[in-house]
Design a protein around this nucleic acid. Structure first.
Length: 177
DNA sequence: GCCAACGTTGGC
DNA sequence: GCCAACGTTGGC
């Protein structure tokens, strides 16, 4: 077994290089509680994506979602359900402070600043689609059929999107990627 | 470690 | 409003 530290350095460099590659995501939000119009009105058209209380989604927010990654903004439980625009990650994973606030709806007594359980990222609006791409339209697209969003029982509120889907959905929206 | 009960998500 | 599909909780 080699203990040459260079090996470790090389793999670290490779890991860093890999993590620099831009990735795509989809964030769900119920427009009743927070819509893309809210994001548009927010200061700097930026918001912290707080309130995620699912470990799989938490791990993505904490470990995988990087500054410069791009995000589809999806309206769930809405009429119509649709991808309504895009945003860019402007701050990578950091502790979700709403979990520390007793008066917050997302308060979690098991999370504290010393040992935070939940994480969030900040996103900034890129564009609101003039023509949102509805769930109906997505379902009608053969090329989109394998999208996580459309899989039966898929509830993950923060999920990866392939570059191919990212592109194709922009085409459906008549927008530039 | 199993699993029943319960709560939530989110499409339909 | 219904309910399938999960995820979590807690007794054992």
């Amino acid at each position: 077994m080699s203990t040459n530290p260079l090996n470790g350095y090389e793999s670290l460099a490779m890991a860093k290089k890999a993590s620099k590659k831009k990735q795509y995501w989809l964030f769900k939000s119920e427009p009743n509680s927070y819509s893309i119009d809210d994001l548009e009105k927010d200061k700097n058209q930026t918001t912290c994506w707080d309130g995620v209380r699912n470990y799989q989604a938490r791990n993505l927010l904490r470990d995988d979602i990087k500054v410069g990654d791009q995000v589809f903004f999806y309206h769930s439980n809405a009429k119509p359900m649709a991808i309504v625009g895009t945003a860019e990650v402007v701050k990578a994973g950091y502790p979700d402070h709403t979990a520390f606030d007793k008066n917050d709806h997302h308060y979690d007594e098991k999370s504290d600043p010393e040992n935070p359980r939940w994480y969030m990222v900040d996103i900034k609006l890129i564009q609101k689609f003039e023509k949102p791409v509805t769930r109906e339209e997505l379902k009608a697209e053969e090329k989109i059929a394998d999208m996580m969003l459309l899989q039966r029982g898929s509830r993950l509120s923060v999920q990866p999107v392939t570059a191919a889907h990212w592109k194709h959905i922009h085409k459906l929206a008549g927008a530039k990627a």
